[in-house]
Lab assay of single mutants.
Amino acid sequence: MIHRILNHSVDKKGHVHYLIKWRDLPYDQASWESEDVEIQDYDLFKQSYWNHR
């Protein structure tokens, strides 16, 4: 379960990846995930991330 999205990056092919802080895990366990991976409520977290940038 996502706690929040910390950052994003765009690779050379134009694909967006998000650095995800996972609920109940420390920050050093955050991981980069592609924008099209199937994660519960991912779209809501991405929308919230962009609304607050």
Rank of each mutant, 00 (worst) to 15 (best):
M1T: 12
M1P: 11
M1A: 06
I2S: 04
I2N: 04
I2R: 04
I2K: 02
H3F: 08
H3Y: 11
H3P: 04
R4M: 11
R4V: 08
R4D: 07
I5M: 04
I5V: 02
I5F: 02
I5A: 03
I5D: 00
I5T: 01
L6G: 05
L6T: 04
L6W: 00
L6P: 05
L6A: 03
L6C: 08
N7W: 06
N7Y: 07
N7C: 07
H8L: 02
H8C: 05
H8V: 01
H8S: 04
H8I: 05
H8D: 00
H8M: 02
H8W: 01
S9P: 03
S9Q: 12
V10S: 07
V10H: 06
V10I: 09
V10G: 01
V10W: 06
V10M: 07
D11Q: 00
D11M: 00
D11P: 01
D11K: 00
D11T: 06
K12W: 11
K12E: 11
K12C: 14
K12S: 13
K12N: 13
K12H: 14
K13V: 09
K13A: 10
K13D: 15
K13G: 08
K13W: 07
G14V: 01
G14K: 08
G14C: 03
G14N: 07
G14I: 05
H15R: 14
H15V: 12
H15G: 13
V16H: 09
V16C: 10
V16F: 08
V16R: 09
V16T: 13
V16E: 06
V16N: 00
H17S: 11
H17K: 15
H17R: 11
H17N: 13
H17D: 07
H17Y: 13
H17F: 09
Y18T: 00
Y18R: 00
Y18V: 04
Y18E: 06
Y18I: 00
L19R: 00
L19W: 01
L19D: 04
L19Q: 00
L19C: 00
I20A: 00
I20Q: 01
K21R: 07
K21E: 10
K21M: 12
K21I: 06
K21N: 06
K21A: 14
W22I: 03
R23A: 10
R23D: 05
R23N: 07
R23E: 09
R23Y: 11
R23L: 10
R23H: 11
D24C: 06
D24Q: 07
D24H: 11
L25E: 08
L25T: 14
L25I: 08
P26F: 04
P26I: 01
P26H: 09
P26D: 11
P26L: 05
Y27M: 10
Y27N: 14
Y27E: 10
Y27R: 14
Y27C: 11
D28Q: 08
D28T: 12
D28Y: 07
D28G: 11
D28W: 08
D28E: 14
Q29N: 07
Q29L: 10
Q29G: 05
Q29Y: 07
A30T: 05
A30E: 04
A30W: 07
A30R: 08
A30C: 11
S31K: 03
S31C: 06
S31H: 01
S31T: 14
S31G: 01
S31M: 00
S31V: 05
S31D: 02
S31L: 02
W32Q: 04
W32Y: 01
W32P: 03
W32R: 04
W32N: 03
E33F: 06
E33L: 11
E33Y: 08
E33W: 06
S34R: 13
S34P: 13
E35D: 09
E35V: 02
E35S: 12
E35R: 01
E35A: 11
E35H: 03
D36R: 10
D36G: 09
D36V: 02
D36C: 08
D36T: 10
D36A: 07
V37R: 15
V37P: 04
V37H: 12
V37F: 11
E38W: 09
E38C: 11
E38D: 11
E38H: 09
E38M: 12
I39H: 08
I39Y: 10
I39K: 01
I39L: 14
I39R: 03
I39T: 04
I39C: 04
I39W: 02
Q40Y: 07
Q40I: 10
Q40P: 13
Q40H: 12
Q40V: 12
D41T: 01
D41M: 03
D41W: 06
D41A: 07
D41G: 09
Y42N: 15
Y42K: 03
Y42V: 14
D43L: 07
D43Y: 10
D43Q: 13
L44T: 13
L44D: 11
L44P: 01
L44H: 13
F45G: 02
F45K: 08
F45P: 01
F45A: 14
F45V: 05
F45H: 15
K46C: 00
K46L: 05
K46I: 07
Q47R: 12
Q47D: 09
Q47I: 15
S48R: 15
S48I: 11
S48M: 14
Y49M: 04
Y49G: 02
Y49T: 01
W50K: 06
W50I: 02
W50S: 05
W50L: 02
W50F: 01
W50D: 00
W50V: 03
N51H: 10
N51V: 08
N51E: 15
N51T: 14
H52L: 13
H52Q: 15
H52D: 11
H52C: 12
R53F: 11
R53T: 10
R53S: 11
R53G: 10
R53H: 11
R53L: 12
R53Y: 14
R53W: 13
